[in-house]
Simulated scan of single mutants.
Amino acid sequence: MIVRIMGEGQVTLAESRLADLNELDEELLAEMENGDGPGFRATLQALLAKVRELGEPLPDDSLEPSDLILPSPDATLKEVQDLLSDEGLIPGTA
């Protein structure tokens, strides 16, 4: 699958690796619900770092349709809330 991190670019990520992101996605949702700004920021950074670690970057000139769009590292709590689905940021994890 193709994952876009807003403001950074795209990576390819095996769908089987989505399970590796479950815990961080659930933690991020809980922090958002509790209004934990510092926790939210740290977990968002950790989630994006994990995507970068598990994914393979696409060339900058590649414009593939994204299967999943994640917020930029400096996204606000409100911006992330706007991206949420019923399943959180990562499908099948909430």
Rank of each mutant, 00 (worst) to 15 (best):
I2R: 14
V3E: 02
R4E: 15
R4G: 00
R4S: 05
R4L: 11
I5N: 03
M6N: 10
G7A: 12
G7S: 11
G7P: 07
G9N: 04
G9W: 05
V11S: 01
V11A: 03
A14Y: 02
E15G: 13
S16Q: 14
S16A: 15
L18N: 06
A19M: 11
A19L: 13
A19I: 10
D20Q: 14
D20F: 01
D20W: 01
L21R: 00
L21Q: 00
E23C: 11
L24Q: 07
D25V: 10
D25R: 12
L28F: 04
L29E: 04
A30V: 06
N34Q: 15
N34A: 15
G35Q: 10
G35T: 03
G35Y: 00
D36T: 01
D36C: 04
D36P: 00
D36Y: 00
G37A: 13
P38K: 14
G39T: 03
G39V: 03
F40W: 03
T43C: 09
A46N: 08
L47W: 02
L47A: 06
L48F: 05
L48P: 06
L48K: 04
K50P: 03
V51R: 02
V51G: 04
R52D: 08
E53F: 02
L54A: 05
P57K: 14
P57N: 08
L58P: 00
L58C: 06
P59G: 11
P59Y: 01
P59H: 09
P59C: 12
S62W: 02
L63G: 05
L63C: 08
P65S: 13
L68A: 09
L70S: 02
P71R: 06
P73D: 15
T76R: 12
E79C: 06
V80H: 04
D82Y: 02
L83I: 04
L83S: 05
L84A: 02
S85H: 01
D86R: 15
D86I: 07
D86W: 00
E87I: 03
G88Q: 10
L89T: 03
I90Y: 00
